[in-house]
């Protein structure tokens, strides 16, 4: 039986990242879906960068940004006494960056699919913009939220390159499942690698089946 602590660490990282990204990504996605600003394509491109950049490139820049000698990393040490590199907190920050598109893009699509029309209807029924957002836009985008959260969670669970660059391999702190599997393979402990890999594979498959099944059911009900 392999050491299961990397599993729990991965789950904690994915859960915290998903929650924080929900808070950050929702307003960003809303802005992107509603704005007529000329800045929109630029912001969209920046948001989508993690999809196309090699994880090592992203990890390299994050490492520099978070390192104690950088302005931000130094500020963090002054504030908390801890370094951001090779720490769990640093991993959370890095995960928020590289999983951002997985939260934002499904939400933008969902908000755009609702269209302005329902928001106008809500306004004509005396709902303020904030009221209309929470009582109309969010419930109508429920599927988009589920998709965005599941994709963010599973993607964070499976990321390897950025984690290795920024977090290294410290048991109980930054040694997540993907890193543990890599190390098991390096040290020829194939049985342990098999168990963790199979577990991750099964989990990912089950989650995706659940998401697609849910989408199908709602689609039928809506149509």
């Amino acid at each position: 039986m392999p050491d299961l602590s990397p599993v729990w660490l991965s789950v904690a990282l994915a859960a915290i990242t998903t929650m924080l990204l929900l808070v950050i990504g929702t307003p960003l996605a809303w802005w992107l879906s509603q704005t007529r600003s000329r800045l929109r394509p630029v912001i969209e491109a920046v948001t989508a960068l993690p999809l196309v950049l090699p994880p090592t490139v992203l990890g390299f820049y994050l490492l520099i940004l978070l390192s104690p000698t950088s302005a931000f990393g130094g500020f963090w040490i002054d504030l908390t006494g801890d370094t951001l590199t090779f720490s769990f907190t640093g991993l959370v920050l890095a995960s928020i960056i590289y999983s951002l598109p997985f939260m934002v893009q499904p939400l933008v699509s969902a908000f755009e699919a609702n269209g302005r029309n329902v928001m106008e209807a809500a306004a004509s029924l005396r709902a303020s913009p904030l009221d209309a957002f929470f009582r109309v836009a969010v419930p109508l985008s429920a599927r988009g939220f589920v998709t965005a959260m599941v994709l963010t969670f599973t993607h964070t669970l499976g990321e390897f390159g950025v984690v290795l660059m920024v977090g290294g391999n410290i048991p109980g702190e930054t040694r997540v499942v993907s890193i543990a599997i890599y190390e098991h393979v390096e040290t020829l402990q194939y049985a342990d690698a098999h168990m963790l890999s199979a577990g991750l594979l099964t989990f990912a498959l089950l989650v995706l089946v659940a998401v697609y099944a849910l989408n199908r059911r709602s689609a039928v009900r809506v149509g």
Binding site: E120, A121, S124, L125, P129
Partner: peptide, 20 residues
């Protein structure tokens, strides 16, 4: 005044009921 602050009722061509 923003639309929600005007005491106006608007009936749209396409009803625009909330499907949720």
């Amino acid at each position: 005044k923003p639309p929600h602050a005007r005491p106006v009722g608007f009936l749209f061509q396409d009803a625009r009921l909330f499907s949720h």
